[in-house]
Design a protein around this nucleic acid. Sequence first.
DNA 1: GATGAATGAGACTTCATTCAT
DNA 2: AATGAATGAAGTCTCATTCAT
Lengths: 199, 199, 199, 199
Amino acid sequence: MPKVSSDYREARRRQIVDAAVACFARQGFHRTSMQDIFAASGLSAGAVYGYFASKDDIVAAVADERHALEAALFADALAASDLRQGLHDLVHAYFDWLRDPAEQERRRLAVQFWAEALSDAHLAQRVSRGEPFRAELATAIAGAQRSGSFAADLDPDAVARVALAVLQGFVLQQAWEPGVDIDRYVAVVDSLIDAGFGP
Amino acid sequence: MPKVSSDYREARRRQIVDAAVACFARQGFHRTSMQDIFAASGLSAGAVYGYFASKDDIVAAVADERHALEAALFADALAASDLRQGLHDLVHAYFDWLRDPAEQERRRLAVQFWAEALSDAHLAQRVSRGEPFRAELATAIAGAQRSGSFAADLDPDAVARVALAVLQGFVLQQAWEPGVDIDRYVAVVDSLIDAGFGP
Amino acid sequence: MPKVSSDYREARRRQIVDAAVACFARQGFHRTSMQDIFAASGLSAGAVYGYFASKDDIVAAVADERHALEAALFADALAASDLRQGLHDLVHAYFDWLRDPAEQERRRLAVQFWAEALSDAHLAQRVSRGEPFRAELATAIAGAQRSGSFAADLDPDAVARVALAVLQGFVLQQAWEPGVDIDRYVAVVDSLIDAGFGP
Amino acid sequence: MPKVSSDYREARRRQIVDAAVACFARQGFHRTSMQDIFAASGLSAGAVYGYFASKDDIVAAVADERHALEAALFADALAASDLRQGLHDLVHAYFDWLRDPAEQERRRLAVQFWAEALSDAHLAQRVSRGEPFRAELATAIAGAQRSGSFAADLDPDAVARVALAVLQGFVLQQAWEPGVDIDRYVAVVDSLIDAGFGP
DNA sequence: GATGAATGAGACTTCATTCAT
DNA sequence: AATGAATGAAGTCTCATTCAT
């Protein structure tokens, strides 16, 4: 019978994860020492290790959280009956999300995870690289092609990849230049979607 | 008058940079120790430090090399009189380049530099983030809009950003999945260019 | 007047000491953490520290218990009027004790205490190293020599040391090889005793 | 091509092993920190780790050295044609060895290894527990029994175990009491050997 | 009395860099 | 110029012990 509630433990985990996210976003996780996390979280070494087994475990927790968030966003994005409208909606939801400064900070982390996933197989599995979205989108595109509403000569998976690239590339550019204009970018993306569906 | 020829020194630098690139691509540069580079290059610690002042200095040299290569590719890509054709040519040149396994290895590095540039201001200046290309392309697009050959309602800089994103996103996806089909992706990109220029 | 009965406290101490003995026997006491003892005893950190002031205090309690047990065995072993018979009886009692698996486990601990006593002066005083037995035996041997029943040319203390060594060496060997044959060893020891007393 | 000779490296290893032996003998190896070894050896952390991969590796090297020394002593001890004389010679050689204060210090270590071998399977294989000696002695005893020169009713292996115990027990007692009289102990052991072989 | 989360000193180890040879 | 042994600061993690609840 624990002395503290499950809520209490959860709050402490949050405290640690949030501290880690802040440190990682600022300095990158390789440059972030456990001492940095202790200081940022206001907890002692022992306390932090009571919640996470290792630094890698914290990184994994942060990655899992991101993964879950992205998965949630994409989850029913394509459930819309009308693909064209669904895509427009998804794009707007996605880029609206990117207006939040807190989310921008977390995106800096996402970029680091992308890189880290290249040399850490264990992390690679926990990093959101858009696969589910790409797969769903490709299926939806293929459907649209069969129904004649989408250009038939393009490979659905390749189209999905380009769509994903448009999102990923923007995340990257925004991470480098936080002030980049979102609206104008979205306008181009919208016109791209329409171009695919024809007049 | 140097004791050893400049060629000799240059060959040694190459040896070190190549070894570093191989290590970085495989393990990421934070996980790559100087010992790893000594072993991979076949040189001693003292020898390596005779050519580079620090690990950061090697990283900078690697980044500079990449930067120069990319700059060269984009340099006259847009010098073509016909923008539409110039873009198609650039895209084909760019993606052909990505068929080379050696280049793919170097691209894994590029992705790491993207991430690193977020927390290392010094490195940020040496990492190719496509700015010159974007600027030139935006200018060219604006010109095309004035001459009526490109959709007038889109922001030229945003269009350039999307174009860049399409390249960056693919580099990312290829780094994760080396087997991704290039031809199908290029076909979509080609059709995108044509969509921008209208029928 | 204590709040809880003395019996209750005693039962808790047992619980802790038993848990510690089990852990120490398995992993050695340096490799046994207090956490291990908490887990093995089923008590909380605070509870254990309510009974023992420190880890060393637990170790001391375990050592004291062993010391008391061995002292009890040897106590009246040599009170017998006939030394030869007394020795045979002692040996049989001692080795019968070593047939008990629980005692064998405790003996693994004894071996650790032997080693630890070399570098921990505080513990050295609480570890049974056979001195009282040796002293008594030497006195008894000297008596037997005066009465002509034991070989006169041997130093009584040295004889006692050899006798002790025969017990200690076996404890060591049994700790390493729990399956070692006790009966055959005892037979040799018996014949050794008889050899000392002559035909 | 190493810059320093193999002798140089060997000397450094010695320096480290000797420092470790001194520390271990004094404080036990669990209480000996790597810092202690750095200080005792006069080398830096990095230097020590250039020769040994870990603390355990140093412990293993120390254990191996002991093992080799003991093996060498016992190696041809029993090669003598006359077992009785061979045993007397071995005993005298063994106990003479124990007169050396440096050897006494190393023996304190041996006792610690005995204990450690109980909970560290990896170390157990590197610790001399007298098996080869015991096996050879048992074989020799069996031979002597067949030729009628040794008491036929005793189990050869048990006799060998008792003989080993007499050595082990003394090592233990001497570790506790460095001043213990060797000559008197040897005299008893000699008479024990003779008792086994009869008049 | 009991709980167990928290503390923080200190353990082991790595690694960028230097410098005598 | 080259070598590679040496340096030592700094990193991650453990664990005996305390104390608010």
